[in-house]
Amino acid sequence: MANMPYIAAIDAGIHQEMRRDPSVLYFGQNLATTENHEFVKEYGHNRVRVTPISETAEIGIAVGAAMAGFRPVVELYMAEFMLVAMDQVTNEAPRFRYMSGGQVKVPLVLKAGYGFACGWAGQHTGTLTNLFAGVPGLKVVIPSTAADAKGLMATSIRDDNPVVYLHHYLLTLEHGEVPDGEHLVPFGKAAIRRAGGDVTIVATGWTVGLALAAAETLAAEGIHAEVIDPRTIAPLDLETILSSVEKTGRVVLVDQATRHASVSQIIAADIVEHRFSSLKAPILQVTAANTTIPYSEPLEASVLPTAAGICAAVRKVCA
């Protein structure tokens, strides 16, 4: 184990796979511009390249390289930059295996940060998970810990499909224990971050920390929350969520995304469809308000989910 920040753990995951597999490529804007760049030094310019500001070409090149047998990782920095190339992300990369009747594989990783709610205002703060999670052929990964940041990155690279790997910018410097050596975290397997029998809280990314803080507060009040972190939202580990709901009968869903058509609403619908009879109270959701994120600090805080908001929702479903 090594204690390292989330951001370093992501790089550790990329290194792990680039060392073992010469077909892994890593490229993007403002990357590898000098010979001293750590990835250039180790893997050379054939596999590590800087690109111009051309997201459509960057992601499209990844699609072509993947079809031709390589495993590209595209550094996109911010999830919003993928919107410039939405056709490549949602209507090219995930379609080719299907349309070719299984003749090609498109193994690639689109690495991007999201949710940078610390004064980045309207265009760099989104939690865009729902835009990708509903596309057949894509996988969507949202690590909440340093260990998962490494292990999910490695699994993303090894996966034979296009993967949108969304790291949370507010977690960048969060430290955690990260396994040394080869570390892989399976897709579609939720982590139970805290066990409890009174209420199920499902949270993703940065909101996992909020949910755990809320659970601590609630424990002092005698309410024992189970906190589930799905880790990947496509595929989604519905089994773990439904098992917990069977046990607790009460559910609070936390999502940093704006509420309308969010991943929390997808989870709510599946719980209602499959475990309606287990529910003892309506499902409550703690999400961002349906708004563009404001710049001004108190306004920004006011539209995002909080630990206090999660506590209030839990008290309500447990009342």
Partner: peptide, 13 residues
């Protein structure tokens, strides 16, 4: 949309 795919395959080559 297929133009960058060709460039990607050319990078592989």
């Amino acid at each position: 949309a297929g133009i960058p795919h060709a460039a990607g395959a050319a990078w592989a080559a």
